[in-house]
Nucleic acid binder design. Structure first.
Length: 495
RNA sequence: GGUUUCUUGGCCGAGUGGCUAGGCAGAGCUCUGCAAAAGCUCGUACAACAGUUCGAAUCUGUUAGAAACCUCCA
């Protein structure tokens, strides 16, 4: 398998440090707002990575953090922070916000059929470790204390290591480009970043430390938690491209400063999502939440889109391309998804004929074609998780499956082993790897009412055979038909 | 200004130097009491220019345009 490593900017052969074990860390959400469609992409994509690695037989330990401190009030920026403003307005504890949005996050991400990570650590749960790491970097001489805060000394670090290796930035260029921000006077250098930040009196989340009361810096938690659960060097670190700089760059710096080792072997970054070609972000407020997507309750949306439609839509693009959310695109995915699921249900029931089939039917061309679909689909996944390509091949299989379904007698055009391979792979890819599952329509009520119509008609015609038959079906489903005195017919649960 | 990336048919969206990606929409056909579903067939696609090559959407260069990041964000 090959993966595109942001660090080398090349596709590299994936070789776990400690095969068959794979350690994967993905930056999770900052839980101070409703999860939006931009949160859905990494969640779904890295879920597929997790699933595919397991499909290949690896034992994955998947860690995805919850950032619940460090972003509630800005570092330096004196501008308005809508969240803390709102927290104040609603008189909520920060942890109340955190708890509420964490639950919201899991709620919608679960609906997308994302398997929960093995560990979901929180930043507030690792304050002690973060203090320890800060001390370690101080001891290494790569940080300095300024008025109760601790800053990472990027300049000094850059003399022994290369700061900017992940994002391809050069420190000197960065300095010129960096804007003047408020509250940065304490820093020796604008590129320096906070490891520990002194808490202002109004700051609600605070812990005592050797440097006074404060809270951990933005980048510290990921270094601490990834190291704690996956070791000083682990296999995969994932996240959105926007985290490449400075977040992941700082993580590398923190890790190298404290352990002297590169923390991550393969860096994977998913691209951004746009809405009608405009970038989505929390601050500009043009965002669509995942809940809204499911409910259709947003002016941008023409209708509601089911979780699996959204998942299918995300997987139809390669993860390193930007993905534009449009109604047309989602609608196309809705249909494409249903087509695949219909075929999934069909192939599950479809069997190769036991005997009495015409052995002369065997057609090597078709047989080879099926094998190619299978090979191509697997190759696509092997090549940097090309889910779009894999879905294309699955689509090819769908056609064949539908044909075989309508003309089962033609199944022996392919060998029994070929049939078994396609069946097994199709199900495995769709369900296990891509994580697409059937969404059952909840049309029970409508169907019951329809059946009652027939019941009434049959009764009017005194066709009691049909009447009894319908009653029987209701009973079999633990329902009863109630012929009311006023002539109405209703249904209820069997008591 | 710097860094990274992108520009594919009506829309979305893959792609290897030479062989049909795929989906959606559209047209025609088959099947069908009518439909639907399904299958088959079809449309001019690869930003522009130049170069490398027997051959390039795929490599190189130039130009134009776009995006993300450089500041909290997945």
């Amino acid at each position: 398998m090959k993966v595109q490593n942001t660090l080398s900017q090349k596709k590299e052969v994936f070789e776990p440090i400690n095969s068959p074990h794979v350690g994967m860390y993905v930056c999770g959400p900052t839980v101070y707002n409703l999860p939006h469609i931009g949160n859905a992409r990494p969640a779904v994509f890295f879920d597929v990575v997790n699933r595919y690695l397991q499909f290949l037989g690896y034992k994955v330990r998947y860690v995805r953090n919850i950032t619940d401190v460090g972003h509630l009030t800005d570092d330096g920026d004196m501008g308005e922070d809508k969240i803390s403003k709102r927290a104040k307005l609603e008189q909520l504890e920060p942890m109340e916000i955190v708890d509420f949005y964490t639950r919201k996050y899991f709620e919608v991400i679960d609906k997308l059929n994302v398997i929960r990570p093995n560990i979901t650590p929180t930043a507030t749960g690792h304050i002690v470790e973060q203090i320890q790491l800060t001390q370690k970097i101080l001891d290494a001489g790569l940080a300095y204390i300024a008025d109760g805060s601790v800053y990472f000394d990027v300049h000094k670090y850059n003399k022994q290591e290369k700061y900017g290796e992940l994002s391809g930035r050069i420190l000197d260029d960065l300095l010129e480009a960096t804007r003047e921000l408020d509250g940065q006077e304490e820093k020796r250098n604008p590129a320096d970043f906070a490891l520990w930040k002194k808490a202002q009196p109004e700051h609600l989340m605070r812990w005592s430390s050797p440097w006074g009361e404060g809270f951990p810096g933005w980048h510290l938690e990921c270094t601490v938690m990834s190291t704690k659960y996956l070791g000083e060097t682990f296999d995969i670190h994932g996240g959105g491209m926007d985290l490449m700089f400075p977040h992941h760059e700082c993580e590398i710096a923190q890790a190298k400063a404290s352990t002297g080792k590169a923390p991550v072997k393969y860096w994977l970054h998913n691209n951004m999502i746009t809405i009608d070609n405009a970038k989505m972000s929390k601050s500009t407020g043009n965002f669509v939440t995942i809940e809204e997507l499911f409910s259709g309750n947003n002016p941008i949306l023409a209708q509601a889109y089911s979780p699996m439609t959204v998942r299918f839509f995300i997987l139809q693009a390669h993860y390193r391309s930007t993905l534009d959310f449009t109604n047309d695109g989602l609608l196309a995915s809705q249909k494409g998804y249903k087509r695949v699921i219909n075929a999934l249900n069909i192939i599950k029931k479809l069997e190769f004929p036991k005997e009495n089939f015409d052995k002369n039917l065997f057609d090597e061309k078709i047989d080879t074609q099926i094998h190619q679909f299978c090979d191509n689909a697997l190759r696509a996944m092997q090549d940097d998780f090309n889910t779009a390509m894999a879905l294309g091949q699955i689509s090819n299989m769908v056609k064949k499956i539908n044909t075989f379904y309508l003309q089962p007698e033609t199944i022996p055009q392919i060998a029994e082993t070929t049939f078994a391979r396609m069946k097994g792979l199709f199900i495995a890819l769709v369900e296990d790897v891509l994580g697409l599952q059937e969404e059952k329509n909840d049309n029970t009520e409508g169907l019951i009412v329809a059946l009652l119509e027939f019941y009434k008609e049959a009764k009017a015609e005194k066709n009691y055979a049909i009447v009894d038959k319908i009653r029987g079906h209701f009973k079999a489903n633990k329902l009863t038909i109630k012929d009311l005195k006023n002539g109405n017919v209703e249904w209820g649960y069997e008591e």
